[in-house]
Simulated assay, not measured.
Amino acid sequence: MNAVPPLAEGYEISADPARIDAGRVHRWLSTDAYWALGRERERQDRAIAASLNFGVYDSASGEQVAYARVVTDLATFAWLCDVYVDPAVRGKGIGTSLVAAVRDHLLPHGLRRILLATHDAHGVYEKVGFEALEEPDRWMALIFAKLGME
């Protein structure tokens, strides 16, 4: 695992749910994230409410510039999802620092694994220790839309 550089100067990471800008997160994800295009605001708000949320904020303005969400029981398993960095601040290592902070936040809980899915950001996640599944054929998914049940 490569060493993760510190968070870029002028930014801070927080898991305080009161700091999440839900409107901004919804706008980012529903209009610019391939996995959540068109996601309804009410659905996003429910996801935020039922998850462990992380934000990266500009230290001077307090403006949120990145987001990550974790679905977890805080005992055995976690799923990292909805990781998004505002295009205006990409290239500063903010995404890598955010994922490292999520990993470090979950470490004391003794989870067996943290899973995620990505189409194009493997390098970001590899920097903090994620790797491809050794036995992907053991994993299955139930897709409600394919069953006409969504």
Rank of each mutant, 00 (worst) to 15 (best):
residue 33 A to T: 13
residue 71 V to W: 09
residue 56 V to N: 05
residue 48 I to G: 04
residue 81 C to T: 15
residue 40 E to Q: 11
residue 23 G to Q: 05
residue 84 Y to L: 10
residue 22 A to W: 04
residue 64 Q to N: 01
residue 43 R to P: 08
residue 33 A to E: 14
residue 60 A to T: 14
residue 21 D to Q: 10
residue 31 T to W: 07
residue 81 C to I: 10
residue 36 A to I: 06
residue 40 E to S: 07
residue 23 G to R: 02
residue 78 A to F: 01
residue 24 R to Y: 01
residue 43 R to N: 13
residue 64 Q to P: 03
residue 57 Y to W: 03
residue 63 E to P: 08
residue 23 G to E: 05
residue 41 R to G: 05
residue 24 R to N: 03
residue 67 Y to S: 03
residue 70 V to A: 07
residue 76 T to E: 09
residue 83 V to M: 10
residue 46 R to W: 07
residue 74 L to D: 00
residue 39 R to C: 13
residue 69 R to N: 13
residue 53 N to V: 15
residue 23 G to Y: 01
residue 22 A to S: 15
residue 58 D to E: 11
residue 28 W to R: 04
residue 51 S to T: 06
residue 68 A to D: 09
residue 64 Q to V: 03
residue 32 D to T: 15
residue 51 S to A: 10
residue 87 P to A: 06
residue 74 L to E: 00
residue 42 E to M: 02
residue 72 T to C: 07
residue 33 A to K: 15
residue 82 D to G: 10
residue 32 D to R: 15
residue 29 L to K: 06
residue 24 R to F: 01
residue 38 G to I: 05
residue 34 Y to M: 13
residue 84 Y to T: 09
residue 36 A to T: 11
residue 71 V to R: 14
residue 59 S to K: 15
residue 73 D to E: 03
residue 50 A to H: 14
residue 21 D to F: 06
residue 56 V to R: 13
residue 34 Y to P: 15
residue 85 V to P: 10
residue 35 W to T: 09
residue 54 F to N: 00
residue 74 L to V: 01
residue 86 D to W: 02
residue 25 V to W: 00
residue 53 N to F: 03
residue 46 R to M: 10
residue 20 I to L: 03
residue 35 W to R: 08
residue 50 A to P: 08
residue 55 G to F: 00
residue 61 S to L: 03
residue 38 G to W: 01
residue 68 A to N: 06
residue 23 G to K: 02
residue 86 D to T: 04
residue 88 A to K: 14
residue 40 E to H: 05
residue 60 A to R: 15
residue 45 D to S: 07
residue 72 T to K: 09
residue 25 V to D: 01
residue 20 I to G: 02
residue 52 L to C: 12
residue 68 A to M: 04
residue 62 G to Q: 04
residue 43 R to G: 12
residue 53 N to S: 14
residue 75 A to E: 01
residue 44 Q to C: 12
residue 80 L to K: 12
residue 67 Y to N: 06
residue 75 A to H: 08
